[in-house]
């Protein structure tokens, strides 16, 4: 059994998760501070990938990063292509997993007691210190939930990924695209093995989270 899809899926999910984490808390923080109407509009745009079919997200990505498109061809001139490469998988996963992180983080930031930040400021603490050492720990529950959801979603991404990077064994194959490919070509045994791998990873992730939460309590 070729383990490439496992390795590929894990690195795509892990890298996307890191990107989504920073992007999610950064934008959640910015949007939580916006006035009413603009906040609503930003919120819709940033949450849209969650409700759109992943294939539609993939279509948009192809519109922007396709090699014959302006941005895509410009990037290609510098040797960066997202179509049919594993790096494209990161792009697809980030887009689809982002709203999960963003929404849970924003919820956590909105219920955060802002007096804590004010208190920190009158006590002479820098804004950066307050954010990382006071606000983030206070919002820990929501943030962890967001990371896990985003990781799980990135790991299981299929629609946008298959649109953008397709399935090339040893190059772009991920667990989910491999399961489909094996089943489609009648290789039920291998498809089942990959399904079990996926279930195992997801179970481990959820167990870890539950343990972390218990420890924190």
């Amino acid at each position: 059994m070729d383990w490439y899809p496992l390795w590929n899926s894990l690195r795509i999910a892990a890298i996307s998760c890191v990107i989504v984490f920073f992007l999610g808390i950064f934008l959640a923080q910015k949007v939580a501070r916006l006035p009413g109407v603009i906040k609503g509009i930003c919120d819709v745009i940033l949450t849209l990938p969650m409700v759109l079919p992943p294939t539609v997200c993939g279509y948009f990505l192809l519109l922007i990063f396709g090699v014959r498109r302006p941005l895509g061809s410009l990037l290609a001139r510098y040797g960066i292509t997202f179509v049919m490469t594993w790096q494209g998988g990161i792009l697809a996963s980030v887009l689809v997993a982002f709203p999960l992180m963003y929404r849970t983080a924003r919820g956590a930031f909105e219920s955060y007691n802002k007096d804590l930040t004010s208190a920190g400021r009158t006590l002479g603490l820098s804004d950066l210190y307050i954010f990382w050492r006071i606000q983030m720990p206070a919002c820990k529950q929501g943030i962890i939930a967001g990371i896990v959801l985003a990781f799980a979603r990135a790991l299981g991404e299929y629609g946008a990924t298959s649109m953008l990077i397709g399935y090339t064994p040893g190059r772009t194959a991920t667990i989910s695209t491999t399961v489909y490919q094996m089943w489609r070509t009648g290789n039920d045994v291998l498809a089942f093995k990959w399904v079990m791998v996926n279930v195992a990873i997801s179970a481990v992730v959820l167990l870890t989270v539950n343990m972390l939460e218990k420890k924190n309590r």
Binding site: N113, L116, A119, G120, I134, P137, A138, K140
Partner: peptide, 8 residues
Amino acid sequence: QNYALFPN
């Protein structure tokens, strides 16, 4: 009013 102690 709520003292704003850092819970962590």
